[in-house]
Simulated assay, not measured.
Amino acid sequence: MVALALCGGIVFGVVSAVRGLTGGSQAQSSQSQSADRSKTKSGSETDTKNSASSDSASDTASADDSASAKPKKTAGIPDCTASDVDLSLTAQTAVIGVGGTVTFKAAIDHRGDQDCLIDSSTSGLVLTISSGDKQIWQSDSCPADSNLLLMHGSDKYIQSITWNANSSGSKCVADADLPKVSAGTYTATLALRDAPKAKSDQLSVTVQ
Rank of each mutant, 00 (worst) to 15 (best):
K134A: 14
T185E: 11
K49F: 05
S51W: 09
Q92S: 15
N147P: 00
N164S: 15
A52N: 14
S66L: 09
L117P: 03
K105G: 11
D47F: 05
S139N: 06
D119K: 05
S170N: 11
A69N: 12
T74F: 12
Q92V: 00
L178E: 12
T93I: 01
D145Q: 11
L149N: 11
S146I: 06
D133Q: 13
H152R: 14
D59Y: 07
S160M: 13
I108V: 15
S58N: 13
T103R: 08
N147L: 07
I158S: 14
A144V: 03
A106W: 01
H110W: 01
D133A: 12
D47W: 04
H152F: 04
S54G: 09
S54A: 15
D175K: 13
H110P: 05
D177K: 13
H110S: 09
H152K: 15
K134L: 09
T60A: 14
C172G: 04
D145K: 11
A144R: 05
Q138P: 01
L148E: 15
W137I: 06
K70Q: 10
T93E: 09
W163Y: 12
S167G: 00
I108Q: 08
D113W: 00
A176C: 01
G132W: 05
Q114W: 00
T46W: 04
V98W: 01
A63E: 10
P71W: 00
N166Y: 02
I118A: 14
V173D: 01
S160I: 03
S160N: 15
Q114I: 03
S139Q: 08
D86H: 04
C172I: 06
L87I: 03
D115C: 02
V85I: 10
A69P: 00
T122P: 00
T74A: 10
I129Q: 04
D79T: 09
G184A: 08
V126S: 06
D59I: 02
S58P: 00
L89Q: 01
D64L: 12
I158Q: 13
P71L: 10
K72H: 10
S66A: 15
A144T: 12
F104Y: 13
D119F: 05
A106P: 03
I108M: 08
D113N: 11
N147H: 10
S182D: 13
K180D: 08
V95R: 09
V102F: 07
V173P: 01
D113S: 15
G153C: 08
V98A: 06
Q92I: 00
G97N: 08
T60N: 10
G184S: 03
T187S: 13
S88D: 06
G124M: 10
D64C: 01
S62M: 05
S121R: 04
T46F: 08
S121V: 04
Y157R: 11
N50E: 07
T60R: 11
V126F: 02
S83H: 02
A174K: 13
A144K: 12
N50Q: 09
